[in-house]
């Protein structure tokens, strides 16, 4: 069976002529956010490493498997910290006239697009570490449930506020047109 290279066989519209989301120019996140990522990953890693070694210390009969397990957990935790930092360079967002896209991931890449006429509401949040670095997180909710909520971290509060206003205005306009 030969692979089908076209989406439809009954081409009603010019598929090649559609705006290609792959060509988007991504706007990177604030550099300070990289530090935030390192810190939060390191905190989690610290908890994991401490907990696994504590278990080995207090349960001596687990040896030698305990050591292997704790060693593995340490490696995984370190890897998580490194991955979190590196993945920062692959995060970014882009806004078009009618939708917003967020891209993330270094090895496991992901790209989410939400059309403005499907936005339910937006909110701005600041975590404890975020606040220290003067950063905000913008979340865009759709009716599609948690896994589709588009979350853009590492924004300056002013940028986040501007983005939010723009998105809500676009959403309102697109709904009025309906």
């Amino acid at each position: 069976m030969s692979p089908i290279n076209e989406l439809f066989t009954n081409d009603q519209i010019d598929l090649q002529g559609l705006p290609d989301a792959e060509q988007l120019e991504m706007i990177p996140l604030e550099p300070a956010y990289k530090t935030v990522r390192y810190i939060s990953a390191a905190l989690i890693a610290f908890v994991i490493i401490t907990a696994s070694w504590a278990i080995v210390m207090f349960q001596p009969d687990l040896a030698p498997y305990g050591y292997i397990g704790a060693g593995l957990m340490t490696l995984i935790a370190w890897w998580m910290v490194v991955y979190n930092g590196l993945a920062f360079h692959y995060m970014g967002y882009a806004i078009r006239e009618k939708d917003i896209t967020y891209k993330s991931g270094w090895l496991w890449k992901s790209m989410t697009t939400v059309p403005f006429n499907r936005v339910q509401h937006c909110d701005l949040r600041q975590g404890i570490i975020d606040r220290r670095f003067g950063l905000s997180k913008l979340t865009i909710y759709t009716a599609g449930g948690q896994s589709t909520d588009l979350m853009i971290p590492g924004l300056l509060p002013e940028t986040a506020e501007k983005l939010k206003t723009f998105i809500l205005r676009s959403t309102e306009q697109s709904i009025e047109n309906e």
């Binding site: 989301a21 059309p115 499907r118 697109s174």
Partner: peptide, 12 residues
Amino acid sequence: RQARDYILYRVE
């Protein structure tokens, strides 16, 4: 990718 671009176009 084509599917994504088409879906977005259609929804928008």
